[in-house]
Design a protein around this nucleic acid. Structure first.
Length: 750
DNA sequence: CTAGAAATAAACACGT
DNA sequence: AACGTGTTTATTTCTA
């Protein structure tokens, strides 16, 4: 955009005078250098990656014979899969080109990864013990009634710490699960036992997402690969990624791929196997739950190990009678059939190779994320004086005992070490780290850079924001998504109008000043912590433009309110306007509340491990069967290439019409909900809102939460980068400040 | 191909 | 003069 902006500026400003231009122009110019640099970097990375792909067999079209020559028979696939996290595309390319990876190297990598896993397990155990200890202590203290309040306080603090830690662990668990999945995938592809090379990136190393392909890129890749040939899309992909700037990557990994696994594993057929406990755990959970989860995890682990062992009859690419090859899902009666299928359909050809490559990217991204989370955990533990961290050595050592005692003595004081909490240098990785992949569905949409348009499409998919800390949307249970947007630098898939309305509705008195609206945006979405000039202008623009926003003069100035009537009117227009949508409505409506309820439930359950990744949910996960209902549009949910980033192609970039429900994935949160809700209101959920069946309900959805805690900022160490750089926001709220770190300050607006 | 929606930019006007 | 608010207009991008 900056480009556009520049041009525009030059032309218009020349005559119009620069009076106004100052403010905006100033902002831009100040960041240009940095931004440009970043941009360049990103572009380079992306290009390299792209080249890589193009050069490879995958895109045989473009790569003539020379390529074929180079391509040794079996090598490509294996190499591609094994190549470690070589983070830089260049490196990757090297590897790919050389196609060399000595067995020793592989071995080393594998071992490394295993070590990591082990460590994680230890951590788990460690945590368990810690919990037990805590419990014990509590009991002890309870008996001697004389325990002073002081102790209680300490206990509380301790508990609080534990909670945090617990959450972190949960995250780790999730990551582990992801890793397991990845490993399985890798194994399948590699047909090699043992975990793959997970080079746990070191904290510092955490190459910004740039290293890997951006989600958009990945999606594109899948599209190209699965689709048989890249079409025009490629342009889009490129463009987007460029504009997005690798930074976009932060947004995330697109785990859509995992869907494949997850999906399959959680298939109905898979009942037998303990479904991975995906649930959003974002919130603190009871120890009980944790234990349960632990157990499940263990079982999962066992299952996996057994898989390894029996390698004979099993195949990582085969499960529950279905081929797990990304995007496949072909049903195979038996193993033999599967093998046949595998050999026929997924033989070593351009396509398969390309798919492998893509998978590799996905894995890479996940690993990066994992390492980030791990680092964060370590930092946290270090802070809490449970040193297991740094040295990956044995976790159990320091038990809580030490930690507990410590805390007892020094309640909140964290003396020696880092007084810094999570938000420390090391720890605070990217926001994405916290919960990346989410939006695969949104996919393209998320990537910051995606141009303006995308979000609106995403809108249709209606993501759920749900509530979290301050704002409580209609579906509190979907919190994960909310959390996601709050921490991840991902563009929310809602239109400005929707968001503004949500902001206002969220307020106690249904009215907000412009500044408060701004605050809500920054507080609620990491994405809006940067480029303030841009989105704030958009907000103002929307406020003025839409009749549904009414300005009310106030003593202290003016506040904005929502004319629900207008809002609904607009919505319904949109909806009615789109035949396709109307078509779909019936089905969804048919389910009425029930549907919503189930949706919610499904959502809650489906919220994947990945931190409630809507995308995942969307994909296949059973529960979401609803998708079908909602999205009548095949292109979106579509059966999309099963599980892959699946359906991504259409879903992500392709869009859907503005008011349509389309692929609306399961998630819905009020905003989303409203998005297409104009007419669906009655559908509404919680019973709260939607009073009656009249679409034009003036009543705003009910908020479950009455008071916003601003605190939440604390719990989310995100990175929001830019904030720091771009001054404007600083004053907004300290919220913003936390960010920094991570990503570069690039602006998506360029 | 067109219309409409949404996002962006930017020019202006006003008030503090 | 510098900002923050509000309004408008123009462009661009996309989809039905």
């Amino acid at each position: 955009m900056s480009q556009n902006g520049l041009s525009a500026l030059s032309s218009s400003q020349l005559e119009a005078g620069s009076r106004d231009g100052r403010s905006s122009a100033g902002d831009t110019s100040s960041e240009v250098s940095t931004v440009e640099l970043l941009h360049l970097q990103q572009q380079q990375a992306l290009q390299a990656a792209r080249q890589l792909l193009l050069q490879q067999p995958g895109s045989g079209l473009k790569s003539p014979k020379s390529q074929d020559k180079q391509r040794p028979l079996q090598v490509p696939v294996s190499v591609a899969m094994m190549s470690p996290q070589v983070i830089t595309p260049q490196q990757m390319q090297q590897i790919l080109q050389q196609q060399v990876l000595s067995p020793q190297q592989l071995q080393a990598l594998l071992q490394q990864q295993q070590a990591v896993m082990l460590q994680q397990q230890h951590l788990q155990e460690f945590y368990k013990k810690q919990q037990e200890q805590l419990h014990l202590q509590l009991l002890q203290q309870q008996h001697p009634g004389k325990q002073a309040k002081e102790q209680q306080q300490q206990q509380q603090q301790l508990a609080a710490q534990q909670l945090v830690f617990q959450q972190q662990l949960l995250q780790m668990q999730q990551l582990q699960q992801q890793q397991h999945l990845l490993n399985m995938q890798r194994q399948g592809l590699l047909s090699l036992p043992g975990p793959a090379p997970g080079q746990a990136a070191l904290p510092g190393q955490a190459l910004p997402p740039q290293g890997g392909l951006s989600p958009a890129e990945l999606q594109q890749l899948w599209k190209d690969v699965t689709g048989g040939g890249g079409h025009g899309m490629e342009d889009n992909g490129i463009k987007h990624s460029n504009s997005t700037g690798g930074g976009g990557a932060p947004g995330g990994l697109d785990l859509s791929t995992n869907n494949t696994n997850t999906t399959t594993s959680s298939n109905p057929a898979a009942k037998a196997s303990p479904p991975i406990p995906h649930h959003a755990l974002a919130n603190g959970q009871s120890p009980v739950l944790n234990h349960r989860r632990e157990r499940e995890r263990e079982r999962e682990r066992e299952r996996e190990s057994s898989l390894h062992e029996e390698n004979g009859g099993t195949h990582s690419l085969y499960g529950h009678g279905v081929c797990k090859w990304p995007g496949c899902e072909n049903i195979c009666e038996d193993f033999g059939q599967f093998l046949k299928h595998l050999n026929n359909e997924h033989a070593l050809d351009d396509r398969s190779t390309a798919q492998c490559r893509v998978q590799m990217q996905v894995v890479q991204q996940l690993e990066i994320q994992l390492s980030k989370e791990r680092d964060r955990l370590q930092a946290m533990m270090a802070h809490l004086h449970m040193r297991p961290s740094e040295p990956k050595s044995s976790p159990k050592p320091l038990n809580l005992v030490s930690s507990v005692t410590m805390s007892k003595n020094l309640p909140s004081a964290s003396p020696p070490n880092l007084p810094q909490t999570p938000t420390t240098p090391t720890a605070p990785i990217t926001p994405m780290a916290a919960m990346p992949q989410v939006p695969s569905v949104l996919g393209g949409a998320n990537v910051p850079s995606m141009g303006a348009m995308r979000r609106r499409h995403a809108d249709k998919y209606s993501m759920s924001l749900s509530s979290g800390g301050d704002t409580v949307f209609i579906f509190p249970e979907i919190a994960p998504n909310y959390e996601f947007y709050k921490n991840a630098d991902v563009r929310p898939p809602f239109t400005y109008a929707t968001l503004i309305r949500q902001a206002i509705m969220d307020s106690a008195d249904m009215q907000l000043t412009l500044n408060e609206i701004y605050s809500w945006f920054t507080r609620t979405f990491a994405y809006f912590r940067r480029n303030a000039a841009t989105w704030k202008n958009a907000v103002r623009h929307n406020l003025s433009l839409h009749k549904c926003f009414v300005r009310v003069e106030n003593v202290k100035g003016a506040v904005w309110t929502v004319d629900e009537m207008e809002y609904q009117k607009r919505r319904s227009q949109k909806i009615t306007g789109s035949p396709s949508l109307v078509k779909n409505l019936p089905s969804s409506l048919g389910y009425g509340t029930a549907l919503n309820a189930s949706l919610q439930a499904a959502l809650a359950e489906t919220t994947l491990p990945l931190l409630g990744n809507p995308a995942l949910m969307n994909s296949s996960t059973g529960p979401m069967g609803c998708h079908g209902l909602l999205g009548g549009d095949p292109s979106v949910l579509a059966g999309s290439p099963p599980g892959l980033l699946g359906g991504s192609p259409p879903g992500m970039l392709g869009g859907s019409p503005p008011g349509t429900l389309r692929g609306s994935p399961p998630s819905l949160l009020q905003a989303a909900h409203d998005e297409y809700n104009g007419t669906l209101d009655h559908l509404d959920t919680n019973g709260h809102s939607s009073p009656g069946y009249s679409p034009s309900v003036h009543m705003p959805p009910i908020h479950v939460k009455e008071e916003p805690l601003n605190m939440d900022d604390e719990d989310c160490p995100m990175s929001l980068v830019t904030t720091a750089n771009h001054s404007p926001e600083l004053d907004e709220e300290r919220d913003l400040e936390e960010g920094n770190l991570s990503e570069e300050g690039r602006t998506w607006s360029d």
